[in-house]
Write a protein that binds this DNA or RNA. Structure first.
Lengths: 334, 334
DNA sequence: CTTAAGTTAGAAAAGCTTTTCAAAGCGATT
DNA sequence: AATCGCTTTGAAAAGCTTTTCTAACTTAAG
């Protein structure tokens, strides 16, 4: 059995109150006893029971993170940032992979409720009313990362998707491309799908390239789908000389498809991605992309949640972080 | 404040014992009261407090996972498998990213101890004596995944690294390659470094290619280092026509370097990887590699830990899973 | 030497649930 | 009608810690 505070007290010949004090307010107990207690603690490798403490403090010092797909490099970066922030702030982290499955997401929220996490970060997925109701019903504070809500008043951190997409497409246009297609997220299961498409449309309209607006195919978050979508896109619009992919994962799928069709990138077609994953600089060709501050997004989300937990509110509700165009090898002048 | 069992009892007009029974042994309470209680539970969205239950059961129904690098696709797969197993078995999962840092790892173990995780899975890292002592001292049961221990009696699941490496190199030899190099893991911070090198050496020796044995450079788990290591390897041994990389991540770094040097893969140099990451089939060229059953490794590790937790022991201590050669585009006959 | 002030330590309660034990209620059997 | 036995319920204890309250003890001052 794990040792309890009683065992320590007995070994040190003091009461349990004294042991507790040694751990929480050391200077209120005289040196002689204190050192005896410390000795006993080390001897027994005593660690206070988190259940008992949780019961008293009504806090678990644990945060929950709900992400759609842990095998997506994007989230790996978010997790890393969030975990570092958690270390700094004294929280543990419980990560759950939802696969964008409603049942599963809701069930994880129940788990969080039961385990009494202090708060949760909800990443990159649509905040469905059911989710919102559940979280509110369980009285669990939460913030959104790489997502936001128009319906509800919820704190969020993300990039300006519309502007970022605009910048990407604008870049292709400035390179001289006139025939531009897009591989986008399905609108019904993504938050950033619509604004990124809006950015695409705005950039085209601004340059009189409206004829391209319909040249979009949608894919489902993974490169295999982007591969397939690219096939459809180029079958329908073989004239394309540039493609805006709303994720680096898509850009890789797109390039992979073009390669299989012996279409040169960037020789014949330029491709620009979005995210700037860790791998993007090592893909062949190296990806031109819009960089998101992925790590910082995760870090900031945890900080924001902490702010919400300690002060009960948040200084800025909808926070935007900077994106940046990174030009590498997958794009070229027309 | 979150509702407690008292609130439910009051609302339903019964004692707390009855409420507890409704949740844990419903058929011991008469229908009339039971339905009143259930109604109250739903009305209040009551969820029993995990701290109080933990105190009684002395179990948290939470497992810990210690991984070296969450941004490595390999671990994402392991996590996914383990999480699915956890759902099946009724555990929550606490994932911690160690960065292979001793301090950090030890500190996470303290956290696990304090949070009373029921057991931990330790992934892919060397089980240093400090780690072993700490875990044993805290009385936390654990199993190893993609790792093993020669010093201690610890349950583990992994692939046969020596044989797998042998198969990879043998494949290159059968393709007719005579000048073969290797990009390996540093031996002092990896478990699979030595056996994979041993497989390399055995395959070479068996075919009278001992002259290649020293043609090895080491890298530190990420493709950037493999890129650099490849530079050193080819500067020293420009005659190489094939490279065995002990990880797909390395293979990508190696190919990326060769591409930058205008060396064709597989035209001039064949590259074989190890792992078969989700991305490996989409890299350009698609990677020839040794597939590990990554998801199953994670899944099995959780099952094994569960076995250890429930029965106190494990049927087979050192479990091996099957690897498989997957031939794609990065290799070619000499 | 006595009293006041201050320091240190222990007893007990609170936090929430599960479970054991005892009691009450009820029907059936003799 | 009384007793037996079964079902159902409530009270109380246990699980471990922190914290409050009280008591005891020390030291200094008068």
């Amino acid at each position: 059995m794990k040792p309890t505070i009683r065992d320590v007290a007995k070994m040190a010949g003091v009461s349990i109150s004294t042991v507790s004090r040694v751990m929480n307010a050391p200077d209120t107990v005289v040196e002689s006893k204190r050192s005896r207690v410390i000795e006993a603690i080390e001897e027994l490798k005593y660690q206070p029971n988190a259940f008992a403490r949780g019961l008293i403090y009504r806090k678990s010092f644990t945060l929950g993170l709900l992400i759609p797909d842990i095998e997506n490099l994007y989230f790996a970066g978010v997790i890393r940032g969030m975990q570092d922030a958690c270390i700094k702030l004294g929280y543990s982290l419980m990560i759950c992979n939802t696969d964008r499955d409603k049942e599963r997401t809701l069930s994880y929220m129940d788990t969080f409720h039961e385990k009494q996490v202090d708060g949760v970060v909800f990443a990159s997925d649509i905040l469905h009313p059911e989710y919102y109701e559940k979280l509110i019903g369980c009285r669990i504070p939460f913030v959104l990362v790489s997502s936001h809500s128009d319906e509800y008043e919820v704190a969020s951190v993300e990039v300006d998707d519309e502007q970022a997409a605009y910048d990407a497409v604008k870049f292709l246009i400035e390179l001289g491309h006139q025939e531009i297609g897009m591989i986008g997220f399905n609108h019904d299961n993504s938050v950033s799908g619509p604004p990124r498409m809006a950015g695409f449309v705005r950039a085209l309209s601004e340059s009189g390239l409206e004829r391209n607006i319909g040249k979009i195919k949608y894919a489902n978050h993974r490169f295999e789908h982007a591969y397939q979508a690219t096939h459809e896109l180029f079958t329908e619009y073989p004239e394309l000389t540039a493609v805006f992919c709303v994720a680096d994962e898509f850009a890789m799928g797109t390039i992979s498809y073009l390669k299989d069709r012996n279409i040169l990138v960037p020789g014949q077609v330029s491709v620009i991605g979005f995210d700037n994953l860790r791998m993007s600089g090592m893909f062949i060709p190296k990806l031109t992309t819009i960089a998101q501050p992925i790590y910082q997004l995760g870090y900031r989300a945890a900080e924001k949640l902490h702010e919400l937990l300690t002060t009960g509110k948040v200084a800025v509700m909808k926070e935007k972080m900077e994106h940046k165009l990174i030009v590498r090898e997958s794009s070229r002048e027309k």
